[in-house]
């Protein structure tokens, strides 16, 4: 045995094994979004589900993101055929209601679905407090780099995307981010930095 050659060969393979070991710490299905930290793409879409109570916006009304400067906006992409959307629906609807009097808005954007089945779904789920918009051709979804629903974006008062959630969003995350982004929030030092994964 030539142990010198053997050790060199084994050492040469070490980076490969290290690479595979590193691979386990990553999820190949997760695609980090480049959007957080950048200006939220503007969109102008039509309301197809009005919402109820104080958050209501009339059916057929036009929603413009650009008009909401000064407010924190939660943009949720969803569809009626999406299983995980069911689990976050109550959270979103309830949290939206809690922030009704504050400078925070919730909006749903329908992703590759028909208004009819989405409306029926909202009915089945027991209603939705905030309005939802139609996105024909998924142009807005593509503008937001959506690759699966649900996805939730939190836009700060300056119109910048502060956070993106892939998969169902929790009340905790919503509260944490909205509270920190609200204009009358605490000192700037405690504002979480935009996450750029």
């Amino acid at each position: 045995m030539n142990w010198k050659r053997a050790s060199i060969a084994v050492l040469a393979a070490a980076p490969l094994i290290a690479l595979f070991a590193y691979g386990f710490s990553r999820d190949p299905a997760e695609i980090p979004s480049p959007l957080p930290g950048h200006a939220a793409p503007n969109f102008t879409l039509t309301v197809f589900a009005p919402g109820d109570g104080p958050l209501m916006q009339p059916l057929g009304d036009t929603f413009r993101l650009g008009e909401l400067v000064g407010k924190v906006v939660v943009v949720n992409f969803w569809a009626s055929w999406c299983g995980p959307c069911r689990s976050e629906h109550a959270t979103l609807s309830e949290t939206a209601r809690q922030y009704a009097g504050r400078p925070a808005r919730f909006i749903g954007v329908l992703y590759n679905d028909s208004a009819a089945s989405a409306t029926q779904w909202i009915g089945e789920m027991g209603g939705q407090s905030y309005p939802a918009l139609l996105d024909p051709g998924a142009l807005t979804a593509i503008d937001y780099g959506v690759y699966g629903v649900p996805e939730t974006f939190i836009v700060d008062a300056t119109g910048r995307i502060a956070y993106k959630q892939v998969g169902p969003v929790s009340a905790n995350i919503l509260h944490q981010w909205i509270d920190s982004l609200l204009p009358n929030a605490t000192a700037a030092g405690t504002v979480p930095r935009a996450r750029v994964p």
Partner: peptide, 14 residues
């Protein structure tokens, strides 16, 4: 597998 075979093959290559 890599460590064993590389040791065996490189070690006996001469």
């Amino acid at each position: 597998v890599l460590v064993t075979t590389l040791t065996l093959v490189a070690g006996n290559s001469e």
